[in-house]
Structures are given as C-alpha cells and as structure tokens.
C-alpha cells in the first residue's frame, strides 16, 4: 500500500459516500444516471468474485464489501425507493449502456492475462469500469445544470482512478515485475474520459457556482 493508492481508495470511498448522502438525506437522485450505477454494480460484482476465496487483508475485504454494498443499494434506492425513484430522470437517462457491456465482455475474452473464468470476468470489470461513466456524462450534458453533490460525486469518482495511475507509476519503479498493461491502459482511458468534465468542473465549481 502506498499513499497514492490509499488516497485513491479514500477518494473512491468519498464519492460513494457523497452519492449515498445525497440520495439518503435529501431523498433525491436528480442528475444521477441509474445506468451508470447499474454498470458500477456489475463492475464490482465481477471484480470482487474472489472476495471469499482469496484473502488479501482486512482493509481489502472491508472496502470490497463497502463498494459492493453501496453500489447495489444505490441501484435499489433509485429503482424501488418511492421518494427517490420519483426524482429519477428516466426520460433523459437513455444511454444504451447494455451496448457497453457486450463489447467489454468480448474484449475481455480476447485480451486478458490468463484465460480463466475469474481472470476474464476481472478483466471485463476493468474494461467496463473504464466506460461506466459515459451514461452519467451524457446525462450531465443533457440536464445542463447539476447540483453540487452530483458534481462532487463525479469529480471524486474521476479523481480516484487518476490517483491509482500515480500508484501504478510508484509501484512500477519500486516493485520488480510490477507490469499490468491491461489495468494501466483501462485506467488511463477511464481517467481521460473525465477530461472535459474536469475542465468545466474547475472552471465552474471552484468559482463557487454549480457545474453548467
């Protein structure tokens, strides 16, 4: 564990907590894409399949449970909670996210480190996470203005993988044989997809106004 990875995990945790805070306290998911949340639930479900078979550390297992629990409960809130469900913008959240799942699965079957069930699904989760934010970014452009909490959520979610890239650079130079091209390229693509959001975020958010 290094400071970059810890910062990345805390940023990721913060993004999830901000979203849960928004949905649970003000009972609203306005501006939040259910499709992105569903993709993230699939990402964690396919990435943490080894949660009971390979123990790394208490921290690792705890964080996996937090990410699994929060992503599925956010989907549940947005789909079934009567008050929250009413604030979901169904008409605008129309990105065909299932069109993202299949190509990622095919790519994982073609490009992976080992051809085993767990490894292919784990690789699939990396590819899917790289594009999972697309429905949310499309919704963001359609709804123009979003509230601060949603803006913070997207900012933290985009930032965590950027911190992971610093972690990979650090580990590459400090650990022999630490080479994971698939993880690195997927992580880079994922972070680059946030580039224009970050641009507007810094323009607007830091200026004290909402993200437009």
């Amino acid at each position: 564990m290094n400071i970059f990875r810890l910062a990345g995990d805390m940023t990721h945790l913060a993004s999830v907590l901000v979203l849960l805070l928004k949905i649970h306290t003000i009972k609203s998911c306005a501006g939040v894409s259910l499709r992105t949340q569903e993709l993230y639930a699939i990402v964690f479900a396919t990435r943490y399949l080894d949660i009971f078979t390979s123990f790394v550390s208490v921290y690792n297992t705890f964080m996996k449970l937090v990410f699994l629990g929060s992503s599925f409960s956010i989907v549940w809130y947005m789909r079934y909670h009567k008050a929250v469900h009413r604030t979901y913008d169904r008409e605008q959240d129309t990105f065909r996210h299932w069109f993202l799942v299949l190509p990622c699965l095919v790519l994982a079957l073609l490009i992976h480190e080992k051809f085993t069930f767990l490894e292919v699904l784990w690789t699939f989760s990396l590819y899917l996470e790289a594009v999972a934010i697309l429905p949310q970014l499309v919704l963001l452009q359609r709804t123009r203005n979003i509230d601060n909490l949603t803006g913070q959520y997207i900012f933290l979610l985009g930032g965590y993988r950027g911190l992971y890239i610093l972690n990979w650079i650090y580990r590459y130079f400090t650990e022999p044989h630490f080479v994971h091209w698939i993880t690195w390229i997927a992580g880079l693509v994922q972070t680059l997809l946030y580039a224009d959001f970050f641009y507007y975020y810094f323009l607007r958010f830091i200026g004290g106004r909402g993200v437009e």
């Binding site: 990875r5 995990d9 990721h12 080894d50 390979s54 790394v56 550390s57 690792n60 964080m63 996996k64 990410f67 480190e113 080992k114 490894e119 784990w122 992971y164 972690n167 044989h177 630490f178 080479v179 994971h180 993880t183």
Partner: peptide, 10 residues
C-alpha cells in the same frame, strides 16, 4: 509470472 501476484488492489 506477474499475474500470479495476488490482486491486492481494489
């Protein structure tokens, strides 16, 4: 092989 290293990242 590097991939034998446990997946210690989230």
């Amino acid at each position: 092989r590097p991939s034998m290293i446990k997946k210690d990242e989230l």
